[in-house]
Design a protein around this nucleic acid. Sequence first.
DNA 1: ATTATTGCAAACTATTTGCAAGTGA
DNA 2: TCACTTGCAAATAGTTTGCAATAAT
Lengths: 144, 144
Amino acid sequence: MSEHNLGHEMLAAMTKSGWRITDQRRMLAQIFTDNAGYLSPKDVYDQMSMKYPSVSFDTVYRNLRMLSEMGVLEQFYFMDGGLKFKGSCVDHHHHHLICVNCEKTLTFEYCPMEQQMELPGRYKILNHRFEVYGICEECQEIAT
Amino acid sequence: MSEHNLGHEMLAAMTKSGWRITDQRRMLAQIFTDNAGYLSPKDVYDQMSMKYPSVSFDTVYRNLRMLSEMGVLEQFYFMDGGLKFKGSCVDHHHHHLICVNCEKTLTFEYCPMEQQMELPGRYKILNHRFEVYGICEECQEIAT
DNA sequence: ATTATTGCAAACTATTTGCAAGTGA
DNA sequence: TCACTTGCAAATAGTTTGCAATAAT
């Protein structure tokens, strides 16, 4: 199961970087293993506080930040500026199709940078951002 | 001068929507006429307070929000989550090439959505976001 | 004159930091 | 043991809101 692997991957990455494996971090790994989509710090906090009622917001923030600095999580600001995280697929480059209603996210392989497009101004290209927004099939049905 | 036009356009749009033209709003229009790039609320506030030392942050925010709801300004969250505004080019669809150092922004016409790409999941596509990030020529020289 | 707009202050949200107590290696 | 991590509380940054005074129409 690739799901199990993500959790192990995350824990392994932490150990490799010299971080200790605490219950909270173990659970963080579990949460992002179980949830394929984007989670806000609050989402994560809510899930964590079910098992660890005493968990604090700053611990969630600290660990989310650490994990995204490590590249294990992807940090992402939505169109409305809300910060979210998701387990990152380090293995291959792809982009996202995101439901503006429920935020269910699908990945696709097409990348516009593979095209030979003419860009102005002799910039040294570093990276890019490409997302498609829409309404997923389920949310379309609900809206009807 | 198209610059002059943008200022007039903005003021005209305000009047058309039934908003009063105050000195602050006149100056807002001027600021986005003179600055082609992205400005944060603070940038705008700083510029405004040079001429109107008593201007308040909330007035800046209110007007920026109103103007972007009207479509005269484009609202934009950068990769780091920072909110910025810029005079919008309503006339044609395009994307941006943004310098990660100085935020100088160039536009280009290529749009990935014109390609026939296969997207998963039967989403009803609403919009998209495509930006290319890099370092502009000037900033490359400075860095050297 | 009437009503929208402003500036102030305060509220609010999201995120970060200092520090003593707790915990993993 | 010993350094890392946590939770608390407080600080900070960014943005929004209520309201009386002000200014545009």
